[in-house]
């Protein structure tokens, strides 16, 4: 007999017991471990997906900020370029104006220097001429230059026409103060008396005369009253001398000399 029914029953029981044992020791723990791992993997994957989404979001934000930054930088660069160009033009204008001002100042300084030189030459020439004339007059007439100048001044006052005398009289008649006579040197008593006499004749009244010494007035004598002035000087003679000297310097042919001579001609009034 191939089938032993006791063995069949025992094997059936054994199999059911084995099913229970395997369920307890194999399937349940293994399936629990697999489920836990799958859950964990699912969590990790979900976390990874979340991080990926966050990364994508941050990347988009970064790209957006980059674009905005580039745009802002481009606009700032454009604005700055315009401002720099305008500032450059402004600075160039300022520099040009400064150079022009400096050049004008320099020209003015050169002109002043030339003028001062010209004046120094003029004064020196006047003094030299004055000294020569005084020496010559002293040698020839045995009289001092001051006497001669005072004589000439008195003679010219007396040689005025009647019409001119009337004009002077009407001009000097309302003089509130004394008549001032200015000269570069102290006049001798005789010349002072002569001048006082002429002044009295001209004003037809006895007018006090005050004599003053003005070192700058090297070229003659001035009579001042009531804002009116009568003078004799050697300025006309010196002007012709100055003109001659200037033409002589220009004839020298040097550019600096030419500019200086030109500057001499443009000398401002002192």
């Amino acid at each position: 007999m191939l089938i032993d029914w006791f063995t069949v029953g025992a094997q059936a029981l054994n199999f059911l017991i084995l099913v229970g044992l395997m369920q307890r020791f194999l399937y349940k723990p293994i399936l629990r471990a697999i489920d836990a791992r799958e859950k964990r993997v699912a969590m990790v994957l979900a976390e990874a997906e979340m991080k990926k989404a966050e990364a994508i979001k941050e990347r988009d934000e970064f790209n957006g900020r980059n674009a905005a930054f580039d745009q802002q930088r481009a606009s700032l660069m454009s604005r700055m370029t315009g401002e720099v160009a305008s500032e450059r033009l402004r600075l160039l204008d300022e520099a040009r104006q400064a150079v022009d001002a400096w050049s004008a100042k320099r020209m003015e300084a050169v002109r002043n220097d030339a003028c001062q030189l010209s004046q120094a030459i003029s004064r020196r020439a006047q003094q030299e001429v004055f000294a020569i004339v005084r020496k010559t007059l002293g040698d020839l007439a045995a009289a001092s230059l001051e006497e001669r100048m005072a004589d000439v001044f008195v003679r010219q006052l007396r040689a005025l026409t009647e019409k001119e005398k009337e004009g002077l009289k009407s001009a000097f008649s309302g003089a509130p103060g004394p008549v001032i006579v200015r000269s570069a040197f102290d006049l001798p008593a005789a010349q002072r008396a002569a001048i006082e006499g002429v002044a009295a004749e001209l004003m037809a009244v006895a007018t006090p005369v005050r004599f003053e010494t003005a070192p700058d007035l090297v070229s003659g004598i001035e009579l001042i009253a009531s804002g009116q002035k009568i003078a004799w000087n050697i300025a006309a003679y010196l002007l012709s001398l100055e003109k001659g000297v200037g033409e002589l310097i220009e004839a020298g042919g040097q550019p600096e000399a030419g500019s200086e001579s030109k500057a001499v001609g443009l000398c401002p009034e002192q």
Partner: peptide, 19 residues
């Protein structure tokens, strides 16, 4: 039965739920 049950028990004593 002993081999299967004891073997399963030995292996599943220290199961790891990690990777």
């Amino acid at each position: 039965m002993i081999v299967l049950a004891v073997g399963s028990k030995l292996v599943t004593r220290h199961l790891s739920a990690g990777l």
